[in-house]
Simulated assay, not measured.
Amino acid sequence: MKIKKILNQNAVLVDDQGEEKVAIGKGIGFDKKRNDLLLSRDIERLFVLEPEGQMKLQTLLSQIDEKYLFAAEKIIDHAEIVLMEKLNEHLLIILTDHIAFAAQNIKDGIILRNKLLPEIEILYREEFTIAQWSVDYLTKTIGIPYTYDQAGYIAIHIHSARSGEQDNHRSIREVTIVSDIIQLIERELDINLHAEEMALNYSRLVNHLRLLLQRFHNQQYTTLDNEIIELVKLKYPESYHVAKQVRVLLIKNYQLSTTTEELGYLAIHIERLRLASHK
């Protein structure tokens, strides 16, 4: 292999039979220059991505320690084994960057609290379990005390990679919407949905909201008889009022419109919460 560019002391860009790859190995970039030959035995890892990803990886490795790349690779391997599926290749770059950035913040005494953690744990249960393992792994191998707030961020990255997204915009939006709805319901009903005795009801509500957003995205709405809707309005006026407040929030803040059927179904869930809080 021929060296095309030195990224850092332990990482170089090589030409392998006309294909660009990033080669990593202890000291392989030291005292080397363009067009020098690189022996296969000196390479510990070889990364091949599509052109855009390759360029991003080169830029990243020129700025950070490659140990974060190795850690991200290990986490992805673990995730793919647990989930039994391949994840989007862009996750390697995104996760490496996140791990390195978080490490620097921790070193600087900057601890970022993840206010969406409870919702992430419910919405993305499989990904969150993997992310918890990842936090323990990072703390042990890198020697930096990553917090469980980071598990929430890592879970979102993994979830986005499962859905084929190259960024986590949609996942973050979904969690943020659910969190905003939870806060509105807590405020309107004057209850604490995060209390231990409300755990099951809270979980059911979060899952319902996740499915509601999925139905909206897929334009596959739930059906409810008009008679049932009128009965809900009559029997659960307080809960139906809160459901209408949720509809206002979705339209005003997120430009999402809900059907009358979805509104009635949501009111039923809210009524369960209201009754549970008064027991």
Rank of each mutant, 00 (worst) to 15 (best):
I6K: 02
I6V: 05
Q9E: 13
L13I: 06
D15L: 01
D16L: 13
Q17E: 15
E19M: 09
E20W: 03
K21H: 07
K21W: 09
A23Q: 00
I24V: 06
G25Y: 12
G27H: 14
I28T: 01
D31L: 13
D31C: 07
K33N: 12
L38F: 02
S40K: 15
I43M: 06
R45T: 00
F47Y: 14
L49H: 14
E50G: 02
Q54S: 05
L57H: 05
L57F: 00
T59L: 15
E66G: 08
E66H: 12
K67W: 08
K67M: 00
F70T: 04
K74D: 12
D77R: 15
D77K: 15
H78G: 05
I81H: 14
L83M: 07
H90G: 07
L92S: 01
H98F: 07
A100D: 10
A103W: 12
A103H: 13
I106T: 09
K107G: 10
I110D: 14
I110A: 12
K115W: 13
L117N: 08
I122C: 14
R125G: 07
A131S: 04
D136K: 04
D136A: 02
Y137N: 03
Y137F: 13
L138S: 01
T141W: 14
I144V: 11
I144N: 10
I144Y: 15
P145T: 02
Y146W: 04
Y148F: 12
A151N: 05
G152N: 00
G152E: 00
Y153G: 01
S160Q: 09
A161F: 11
G164Q: 06
E165T: 12
N168I: 10
H169K: 12
S171V: 07
I172K: 15
E174P: 07
V178D: 06
V178W: 11
I181C: 06
I182K: 00
L184T: 00
L184R: 10
L184E: 08
R187I: 02
D190G: 05
I191W: 04
H194I: 01
E197I: 11
A199M: 08
A199V: 08
L205V: 05
N207S: 08
N207K: 14
L209F: 02
L211Y: 13
L212M: 10
L212W: 03
R215K: 07
T222S: 11
T222W: 12
I229F: 13
E230D: 15
E230P: 04
L231N: 15
V232N: 06
V232K: 09
P237L: 02
V242W: 11
R247V: 04
L250C: 07
Y254S: 02
T258P: 02
T259P: 03
T259N: 04
E262F: 10
L263S: 06
G264R: 04
A267P: 05
E271T: 02
E271V: 04
L275M: 12
K279C: 08
